[in-house]
Write a protein that binds this DNA or RNA. Sequence first.
DNA 1: AAAAAAACATGATGAATGTCATGTTTTTTT
DNA 2: AAAAAAACATGACATTCATCATGTTTTTTT
Lengths: 236, 236
Amino acid sequence: MKKKFEIPQCETCGSKHKSIFCDISKSEVSELSDSKGCNLYNKGQVVFHEGNRTNGIYCVNKGKIKLFQIGSEGKEQIIRFAKEGDIIGYRALLSDEPLSASATSLEEDTAICFIPKQQVLKMITENPNFNFKLLKILSHELGETAKIITDLAQKPVRERLAETLLILKDTFELDDEKNIQVKLSREELANIVGTATESVIRLLSEFKKDKLISLDGRTIKLLNIPALTRTANVFD
Amino acid sequence: MKKKFEIPQCETCGSKHKSIFCDISKSEVSELSDSKGCNLYNKGQVVFHEGNRTNGIYCVNKGKIKLFQIGSEGKEQIIRFAKEGDIIGYRALLSDEPLSASATSLEEDTAICFIPKQQVLKMITENPNFNFKLLKILSHELGETAKIITDLAQKPVRERLAETLLILKDTFELDDEKNIQVKLSREELANIVGTATESVIRLLSEFKKDKLISLDGRTIKLLNIPALTRTANVFD
DNA sequence: AAAAAAACATGATGAATGTCATGTTTTTTT
DNA sequence: AAAAAAACATGACATTCATCATGTTTTTTT
């Protein structure tokens, strides 16, 4: 059962300033606000499904999203995450291809706006700033995925898990107690790292024993980031 | 020692029609031709180096290019290839980040033009067609890398090698004898697949024994594409 | 609150694949 | 053409890591 909620207005959107929409004009904002739709999602609900067509882009107003593909054996592979202010679904729209990944919400009360294709295209052609930001997002993302490819191809599971924790830290940040601000199951962690759930469980226990992290259910506290970085074998 | 060669003119460029520049105006073509530079490369020469800054994009006029990253243990990971008509280096330019990969030529007499940043930015702002093509290239590429991530994370080496052969087929095409039109060392194949050179050698021998391919030095003939597709475990 | 389901945890085992050693062939350099 | 280097090939072995089995804890449903 979906709760009632205030439909977010772009004019007052808290995540606007840190999004691709941060410096569009007043008239564009109101146009955007009029053209968009917005939906609330419970934890685990599907926002869009791999293989489908999309007719616009989605903008995360509140909550956290995982984007994943289903591999040939039916196993989920998490490709990336999105949070407040991020857009998703733009890849399929701009390449005019089916969605390459599915998106589901990771938290209750996730709010996601939908901006129709027509409006997106209009902003691309009429607002060079928006256009360049889009090019920047895409090309940055492409660089990140290339790094992931190299890691998956060359690093052992232990290093990849350590690196995943650091990436999750950078993506969702730590609270004041150094806990990573996202809760994922062991299985989901395995589906990022590209390994078996049991391996994640074992390695997390090792990291804990080595005082790199501490665990409380799905909450992971980073106790020693430099040592974790060394474990991940990253130097940048 | 670099041979003399006719500097290619964009007006008469044979690869223009199949590139991002296929439908720019006459005046834009001549502007492009004036602003660009062009270089010849021998086999194995570096076009650009990971970590450096770039001040423009490169357009492959003739020849084949591999793009790769160096992993934390110094091992090369091939991210993608480029051929006649393809552009490279655009990711770094558009994201305003250092180059995420190195590029080297795979053949003698590779010719690559360089288009300065200023010219690229001008075309982006002034030619919506060019702009959308760029967005399309980036987003398509992003979709391809996502697939590769899922495969690397989930498929065994045998399947990945079979799939690599099929991707090479699609990228460089077959000649009339069904030979893949690119010559790579076993080590380079390993650096695509994410495995050891010895594993590639062994698996190629198996594929040969199973009549999926035949081998003549670095030339790979695809004898049974449907069976290779099944071996790769792909269904699309 | 009880029952069921899902998630977490740990040990035992085996398969996939990386590493090392060694030899042959091919290519490049002198 | 000879020598050197690089690439290719194959066997033996070791290691990582996935799978299976089983049990416990936590969460969800009834």
